[in-house]
Amino acid sequence: MATQNNHASTPLEYSTEEGRLKIFGFWVFLGAEIVLFATLFATYLTYQHATAGGPTPQDLFVVKDFMIETLLLLASSFTCGLAIYEMRRGNQKALLLWYIVTLLLGAGFLYFEIHEFFMYVTEEGATMQTSAFLSSFFVLLGTHGAHVTLGIFWIILLLIQLQKRGITPVTSRKLFVAGLYWHFLDVVWIFIYTLVYLMGVAG
């Protein structure tokens, strides 16, 4: 399939005009996503001490829990990179396999995140309605988590298309773009890890 590509140096997903436009368009869209998350971060940082007598970050955050989440998501970004590497080599089986591993790691991340939220609500009584700190915490992390959830369903759809159609300029472009999205969520998480969790437990 990869032999469709005339220029050995140009990756398949960049081989058509449509592919180039859509990949560039997605980069631009990620620029907008950066602004979206930046606004949520700014809101969180404004309110991180606005606890209204409710639980503080030190009361809530457990180092072990957020470390597990972080490692799962970082690992998924690495396997996503491997998937794209195999796609460039035209190895459909390995591409599929690495993307499935990516999704499993992503689902694991979500499991621990939802578990963490569940504990906050049930054990600590810390809900979105408790304080401005918790409102901004849940909305920032919830937006990230919703992105991961959407990404998992999106990539499942793309893997179905990959199995039906093989690695073509179109499917490779879609998987590449989904990969950009996945890495982007990882980068956002690194900021959450630093600005929310580490700074939170440090006080």
Partner: peptide
Amino acid sequence: PVLTVALALMTFDRLFGTHFFTISGD
């Protein structure tokens, strides 16, 4: 995207009782 977030936050305040723009809840 800033408008998107601002509108969403006020929507949460009004529909789900969060405290982004209220005096209560800090």
